[in-house]
């Protein structure tokens, strides 16, 4: 059986909010590392990979690996019944038909218990190769969100150009064109507001803004986002949490 207790229900709520517009039916793969998921969107353009590490739960008990087939719209409905500050316990049997979600308030005088019906989801898992990226840009997640939301007003796609001078996001559409350039800067007082660029070679790639705007729903999970790019490979957008991560992969657009 699985028993996993999370100090803050808000963490799972934010994770689900971040991915539920991209993927609908998913498996939570529970193993010794923690609770993981990997799923592609219907068009096979974007992939989400998430891990809530077992260390992030206290306790984390698992007798054997199990996959919990979940409809995220249904899970969202149940998670709405939890306060962000509630303690959340997930429980499931070894061959589960349902997932139990128990919410307790911090004062320990309210306990809510919900059962979510599980589904059989036949999910294809992709092998994501270890990649040495040519450029890794870490920046405030709110800044990345603002840039994507601004540029999508002008165009469907954005060209990201990373060089040692900085990172330039540019787009061009029917009404005109626009760009935002961020220079590398180190904010000593507030490291989360720094923009850092690690570069082995300059990179220029074009991506669909619709997906990037969607990924930015994970901004609530982390104040910092890391964009990893190499020419002609999918972009990696990572939101790191205290004990886990949400990663998005997006295939580039090619040709003009």
């Amino acid at each position: 059986m699985l028993e996993a207790r999370l100090e803050q229900a808000g963490v799972l709520k934010k994770v689900v909010d971040a991915i539920r517009d991209l993927v609908q039916d998913i498996n939570f793969d529970c193993n010794d590392s923690g609770i993981a998921l990997q799923a592609m969107d219907n068009s096979h353009v974007a992939l989400v990979s998430m891990l809530l590490k077992s260390e992030g739960f206290s306790p984390y008990r698992l007798d054997r690996n199990i996959a919990l087939g979940i409809n995220l719209t249904s899970l969202t409905k149940v998670l709405r019944c939890a306060q962000n500050e509630d303690i959340l316990t997930l429980k499931a049997e070894d061959t589960p038909d349902t997932l139990s979600l128990i919410f307790e308030n911090a004062e320990n005088d309210r306990i809510s218990e919900y059962e979510l019906k599980l589904m059989d989801i036949d999910q294809e898992h992709l092998g994501i190769p270890e990649t040495e990226y040519a450029a890794a840009i870490s920046m405030p997640s709110a800044e990345f969100q603002r840039i994507c939301r601004d540029l999508i007003q002008l165009s469907d796609s954005v060209t990201i150009e990373a060089s040692k001078e900085g990172v330039k996001f540019s787009c061009s559409g029917d009404i005109g064109s626009g760009s935002v350039t961020l220079r590398q800067q180190n904010n000593v007082d507030k490291p989360d507001l720094s923009t850092k660029i690690e570069l082995t070679e300059p990179v220029t790639l074009t991506f669909s803004l619709k997906y990037l705007v969607n990924f930015c729903k994970a901004s609530a999970l982390s104040s910092v986002v890391t964009l990893s790019l190499s020419n002609e490979v999918p972009l990696l957008v990572e939101y790191a949490m205290g004990s886990g991560f949400v990663r998005f992969y997006l295939a580039p657009k090619i040709g003009e």
Partner: peptide, 14 residues
Amino acid sequence: PADQESLLSYFGKR
């Protein structure tokens, strides 16, 4: 316009 690539051309099925 640029063509949207599929992830399947980069990541193999496991």
